[in-house]
Design a binder for these strands. Structure first.
Lengths: 196, 196
DNA sequence: GGGGTTCTAGACCGAATGATCTAGTAATTT
DNA sequence: AAATTACTAGATCATTCGGTCTAGAACCCC
């Protein structure tokens, strides 16, 4: 053993996570990360090896502390029939109430979608997230519409995924429209209810 | 008068447009643009003033030669009842058939959404595009569902916008899923048809 | 063909990029 | 307290960034 770190690793990662969330992978510079974490380059490279290493840690943290807790309502047994609605309401409220200058608007991973076009590893991470989102919707939808066919559930899961993706992308462009988009997801569910 | 330019301006702009389309605004470097256009920095700056100037020209070209021709079917009188379906079919086919290494997958403007978080002028451009897309959907939907209320048309226009946005964002991540998403838009229309 | 104008290649600029290195500090263990 | 180990500030690295500049080449008009 030697000298212990002068920082809390989880705090460093979550500070970095917010910067990446705001500016994407390419848009974030080392000085940005130094400023946000309070660490110098030395410590960052000592602890994470590279900018990408810190990004990977930030993504893991994003999935663990932001994404999964939100998805939990969709998949944790017992899944309530209203789970889908709860999820969308929660997401809507987050987009709606976050301050204008908050970095936590939109989605860290979709913010990197463009870079993913030339970074297969990154594309995989984003695709895994997309698949998990769609899968979680499918689970929750089957709790609400137990009689629906698998094909119909898959189709509806994809529709809700679309509205989530669009809502999170638009959150960086036009908050009101992002909120309206997510609300349209809720209204869509109302329509489905009338069919079943 | 003096020496005439040794290039066709429209060719330069469209070459640059494809690079921005592929890599976004921040992800595109001057050397990238020199390579794609065949012009040296001097000529680029002489003709466009700045990287941003060239980007603006590329966006204008994108809207004129890519977006508007596609949207035409949605808004040009007389609007066919099947216009919405035609639009989605065309877009689906483009995403489906473009070679893997084509820069023309996804959307130039949504590829810049992350940068737009700190660039209000860029955010405006993207929002205008989003609004035009939603508006065009609304026009075409009212041709298909003349009896539907304005509120319902607006809601459906937003849903189709979501699927388009998601499809174009996912195009950089997972082509099959992007195609499936756009197809889900078509299936959605089938469902609406049964209601009306 | 000469004068005037415009275009363009390539060198150059300062600033910023991600990354490394050195030196020294600070804590733990014995 | 000494020895050992681990952390970190700051200078430094080569590279790349967007942008400028100079010099000369190419063309139009007279």
């Amino acid at each position: 053993m030697g000298r212990p770190a002068g920082y809390e690793l989880s705090e460093v990662v979550s500070a970095a996570r917010d910067v990446f969330w705001d500016r994407g992978l390419d848009g974030t510079s080392l000085p940005d990360l130094e400023r946000a974490t309070g660490l110098s380059r030395s410590s960052i490279y000592h602890a994470f090896g590279s900018k990408r290493g810190l990004f990977d840690a930030a993504v893991r943290d994003y999935l663990d502390t932001v994404v999964r807790p939100r998805l939990a309502v969709l998949v944790d047994e017992p899944v309530a029939p209203d789970a889908v609605r709860s999820y969308l309401r929660g997401l809507t409220q987050a987009v709606e109430t976050l301050p204008d200058d908050s970095p936590r608007r939109g989605c860290l991973l979709f913010a990197c979608a463009t870079s993913a076009g030339h970074d297969p590893a990154l594309a995989d991470v984003i695709e895994d997230y997309r698949a998990e989102l769609t899968g979680s919707f499918a689970v929750a939808l089957s709790a609400r519409y137990p009689a629906a066919s698998l094909a119909r559930l898959a189709r509806r899961a994809r529709q809700l995924t679309s509205m989530t993706v669009a809502g999170l992308v638009l959150a960086k462009i036009n908050r009101d429209e992002a909120v309206a988009t997510l609300r349209a997801g809720l209204e869509q569910i109302n329509e489905w209810d009338q069919d079943d």
